[in-house]
Nucleic acid binder design. Structure first.
Lengths: 219, 219
DNA sequence: TTATTTATGTGACAATGTCACGGAACGCGC
DNA sequence: GCGCGTTCCGTGACATTGTCACATAAATAA
């Protein structure tokens, strides 16, 4: 796995540092369901995603989850190296939704180089800003969107990601993504069925009227 | 107003760049209630806070607000220069809660130097991470704290900030901070009065049992 | 088949948000 | 002082979402 493609200014980084980064990168394969960060004590390092899909989420003390964002091929996960910054105290969890190759650069190595390399530090900045943006989007969703809109949007996004209108997902999994209770999802899906937007089966939701769902999602 | 104190690695920045930053800094005084960023079109620049207190919040289309965080003396506001990053699309609003001196460094100047200066870029990173942390804290509050806990915590924080147990604040202002409706605040405050936690008067809330409030706030 | 696990359905209730008011306190001009 | 408009607060009815306690049904294992 070639890591140079992840860094847009690869050629502006010092040659010795490129070497260091390359050899520090720990390439491995993750399988679906693998846990990359278990919440506490999270400082695996910078994760460069080759072919996997990762879900980054937070977890409450009571075990409720909310998905912050998902990362796919070509993305870089920075929060898994959040200990390189002072004053960051929140915990995140990362799990592989789809298996594939990833490369991990240990936090210390990355930080050392970043400290003296402007291109790398600015790259870090850019990634951080993008994640910040995702999280702000989430806040706005949670605060100002009604649940039907959030569910509709989730289903559409999911269909896009999976490239299929038939989603193999349980109500409980949806609830985890959206940070609500299963019963609430069941109730709303039931309503969607009544309106003809989706069809349900055990462990699956099929979108039957995407146009209507888009309307509900408010876009 | 001396801006060097804001940058922990001031002496590691190139002398010419220090000069440029210093002369680009636009020092001015803001009065209470002044709007520094009106949502859309936000790229005032990096704001260095001398003596003012700023409130950074987001606004829904319906006019509902939520406070993201507040900044005081010695703090740096980065989101007011968020256009220096690609892909950042959320809008923020900034208003002065307390008058005082601030210095503004235009985004372009800051970005130019940051692009070639590792210390500055890493400083930017650090600030961004801290703001990210604040926002994550907010998400956790919104998602898994009940409203009584959030209100109690807000009142305690406010008393700390104002250095007084008697707060000159209306129910509506509290609602804006917490992103809810005035009636909800009124209702809960009424309950707090019944329990003897606070005393109310027009335009003011007085904390009468901080210990109990801390307990409710969950800390 | 029978048991067990996993997924879904549902009703009652609690917490919070929305709406439509009414009334009380304050500021201001007289 | 008085009237009067504005701001702030209180309240009831209802909608939405979250919680809890189950029942049922479909898959899977024994």
């Amino acid at each position: 796995m070639d890591i140079s493609g992840f860094f847009p200014f690869w050629d502006k980084i010092d040659a010795r540092d490129r070497e260091t980064l390359g050899s520090a990168a720990n390439v491995r394969h993750v399988a679906e369901g693998d846990v990359l960060e278990p919440g506490r004590d999270n400082c695996t390092g910078l994760i460069l995603i080759g072919g996997a899909r990762l879900r980054v989420f937070i977890l409450s003390e009571e075990g409720r989850e909310v998905t912050l964002f998902r990362l796919g091929p070509g993305d870089v996960c920075l929060l898994s190296a959040s200990c390189m910054f002072q004053g960051v105290s929140f915990d995140i969890n990362i799990i592989a939704e789809k298996g594939g190759e990833i490369a991990i650069i240990p936090t210390r190595v990355y930080k050392t180089i970043s400290d003296r390399s402007a291109p790398l530090a600015n790259f870090t900045n850019q990634i951080m800003a993008e994640r910040f943006d995702s999280v702000m989007w989430l806040i706005e969703q949670i605060l100002w969107k009604s649940f039907d809109a959030r569910l509709a949007e989730f289903l559409l996004d999911e269909a896009e990601l999976e490239n299929s209108d038939s989603l193999g997902i349980t109500h409980e999994q949806i609830a985890y993504h959206l940070g609500t209770a299963r019963e609430v999802v069941t109730r709303m899906l039931k309503y969607f069925v009544g309106e003809g937007y989706v069809a349900l089966a055990r462990g699956s939701v099929t979108l039957t009227d995407k146009e209507a769902l888009r309307k509900i999602a408010g876009k």
